[in-house]
Design a protein around this nucleic acid. Sequence first.
DNA 1: TCATGAATTGACCGGTCGGCCAGTTAATTG
DNA 2: CAATTAACTGGCCGACCGGTCAATTCATGA
Lengths: 201, 201
Amino acid sequence: MNTVTGTRDPDLTRERILEAAHALFVAKGFAAVSMREVAARSGVTKSLIHHHFGSKEALWELVKERAFSAYAEGQQAELRQADAPDAALLTNAVIRYFAFLQANPEVVRLFAWSHLDADQSCGRLDAELVRLGAERVRQAQQRGLLRADVNPAHVVTMFVNGCTQWFTARTHHSQWPGVGNDQEYLDDFLKIFMEGLLPRT
Amino acid sequence: MNTVTGTRDPDLTRERILEAAHALFVAKGFAAVSMREVAARSGVTKSLIHHHFGSKEALWELVKERAFSAYAEGQQAELRQADAPDAALLTNAVIRYFAFLQANPEVVRLFAWSHLDADQSCGRLDAELVRLGAERVRQAQQRGLLRADVNPAHVVTMFVNGCTQWFTARTHHSQWPGVGNDQEYLDDFLKIFMEGLLPRT
DNA sequence: TCATGAATTGACCGGTCGGCCAGTTAATTG
DNA sequence: CAATTAACTGGCCGACCGGTCAATTCATGA
């Protein structure tokens, strides 16, 4: 129902339900969210959600699928726009990835819920991303720009982990003595990570 | 109730309830576990759990508190037994920490649930650990064994993150092309991490 | 030995859960 | 302009939720 024109608009209705479900699932996880909450937040009847999406599980899967495919598309675009692979390119990739997670905390939380779910589906979206990233690293290794004695996939994994976990465990880190802000952590991470990746002399 | 002697044993009963609750909370998280499940698994009545622990929330807090303090004690013991800080000491600390998480996957999951809860209490236990670890790193820096232009707390954070997230996101990594097993990842992580921490020439 | 209090039980409470269904309203289409 | 289909509603279902309570069993110590 379009509240402006008073006319029916099933697409808009679906969108509103998905938005509400997204916000609630991100905040509380699947089990702690009720269909009644989603209904109240999206301004529709509980029955209507079932009409459009079938079940709570189906809604949850759709919310994850949408979020992760948006994430994967954005990241693939980032990866493709870059050109010749060198060390600075990797540095920039880390900076951009870190900034993305910083600007999209709901993606971080959705990843965390999905990990605890042992969700298989969203890992598949990552796979192509990792393949592309690792390919870049491998090219840089062949050109002698990065050390060649490490698995390119592990290089990608390591920086994704380093960025993701920083935001996932934010409530912990904020209580740790001496730990700085986002920028300060990123700077030190890059110092160590990039230096560790230089070719051995 | 002690099933062997048929006699009452409230301490054992509490222990059994805690064990059952631990297993279920680790597997499914707070919201998805019911008191009836805990009761069934521990072989006692739901009322008895309330008698001993008060409420579901209290039981959850106790489960986390026990697990995290056991974790913190074990790690502090590890930290104290080591002597003169050098680069090899840090390498060994990473190896041991990684092995600990590998052997205690329920700790990893409990951490993840706690992060999503925005739980403050367990971060405080970490604080002392991080302080001790960072102190070691700072000593090594002063002796010129590790580069001095990075925040010691960030060094600790980085290796904790690198290890933790590896196990947290295991279901994802296992689908990523080219990613190896635990040992292979740890080896590459150490290569990059330790090399990146050497003093600049 | 017997009284006291803790351990333990099962029945029960009000409330919420996800899902279903019959019915109504509004677009679409032939 | 009917007829058909999809969008949408409110009420209801059985199951389950966390929690309470009175009653019972048992260990213990005076």
